[in-house]
Amino acid sequence: QCYTRNNDVYRGSTSTTQSGLTCQSWSSQYPHSHPFTPSNYSNSDLISNYCRNPGGVRNGPWCYTISSHHSWEYCNIQLCASPPSSTAESCYTGNGEFYHGTIRTAVGGLSCEPWSLFNTTFNNQTGNNFVKNYCRNPIGMVRNRPWCYTNSTTGQWKYCNVEKCIRLPISGSTYPLGSYHGEFYRGTENYARNGSVCQNWHSFNLTTSYATANHLMSNYCRNPLGSTRNHPWCFTDTLTRQWQYCNISRCNPLLIPTPAYPSPPFERIDTKTTCYTNNGEFYRGSISTTEKGQQCISWSSKSLVDSQFHQTNYSHPTLVSNYCRNVNGTKQKPWCYIHESNNKWQYCNIPKCN
């Protein structure tokens, strides 16, 4: 018996982990509660306590253990020597953090450079799976889909020719397209993508007003307004404040009707607004000049296609025309791009409200 990496195709009967522990039955919630039930993953053959990789969420077959001291472990199964080509990933889910396919061509037909040529901090991070010159999106990056370096001298990068998967997400575990990055997700999912149980938000000394405004209830996955993260998430460790993205898919408008969630209250342009509050995250005016008197360029400018906040890379309704913005409060106050060749930016000529 063997398995192919990152796939939900192993159907053997092994039921012990690499350390010799017996697996917990998938239909049981004791001693470890979890979301990987036969009803939630009906196509993953979750029979008895046999090792599986439901949804392909991990690098190989695994299981929860019957030991209360060990939540889950990989199983004692060997990796197949030659994975069949039919299992190669040709599309990605979410923002591509868990894409481990073999596509290595960037948009425009450019060939990807090997990751080993670049001394980056994420090369050694667990879970990024950097192999050869295959397209990836390192965990924690703000980019929206798999990408690669295309020039080892300049460090230039491009998004890859990888399509987004079109599939129905698990019922009850979706957030609407109108939420952009899940800011208005109000569901009850409380597990991270790696299977960890979310911790209660109130264990992290959050102010009552902040928790109320962002509906931080119990240990449910959320993405608070102002967060730079692009998907609902939760804390998984109260001591280290470690966090993980949650096991929630973004709704596909062609397959699932958008639920009746509240629309963001800041889509309308207010031409009368001449100042900003706090860090300007909710400034919606039409000022388009910088503190140095330079004219802002449009957020949809073709020269910005590889920048983080180009309209096609950062689908947010407030990036209109060339108006000053501070999306998700990533900078100290409203700003804009001012140069089309090198993505230079400046703070805008907007006073803070009294």
Rank of each mutant, 00 (worst) to 15 (best):
L319D: 07
R143K: 07
R136C: 02
V197C: 05
I269A: 15
V327F: 10
Y185D: 12
S263E: 04
E113L: 08
T273C: 06
T208R: 11
W72M: 10
C251W: 07
K292Y: 08
F282A: 02
E267N: 10
S68Y: 13
Q294K: 15
W233N: 04
H181F: 08
I77Y: 14
T207V: 05
S42K: 06
N343G: 13
F184M: 11
G20I: 14
F204D: 08
T240C: 08
N6M: 10
N53I: 00
H32A: 01
V305N: 09
K344N: 13
K302R: 12
R241H: 06
P38D: 14
V57I: 01
C80K: 13
S209Q: 14
Q125C: 11
I66C: 09
P38M: 11
A260E: 14
Y210M: 06
F282E: 02
T236E: 13
Q78C: 02
W299E: 07
D45E: 03
K331Q: 09
Q242R: 03
T17S: 04
Q78Y: 06
T289D: 06
K302E: 09
Y314V: 03
Q295I: 12
P265F: 04
S67I: 00
M217R: 11
S171R: 14
T154K: 15
P253A: 00
P114I: 05
C112R: 01
C75N: 06
G226W: 12
L79G: 05
W201G: 04
T207L: 07
S33P: 01
E340N: 13
T212Q: 15
S196I: 03
S39C: 00
N313A: 00
N354Y: 01
N137I: 00
C246V: 00
F235W: 13
L46Q: 04
A211W: 13
N144A: 04
P259H: 01
T102V: 05
N313W: 00
P83I: 09
S86P: 01
R268V: 06
S67C: 02
W233C: 04
S90P: 10
E267Q: 11
N133E: 07
C165V: 02
G12K: 07
C234H: 04
R325V: 09
T290V: 05
I66E: 10
N49P: 06
A213G: 06
S82I: 11
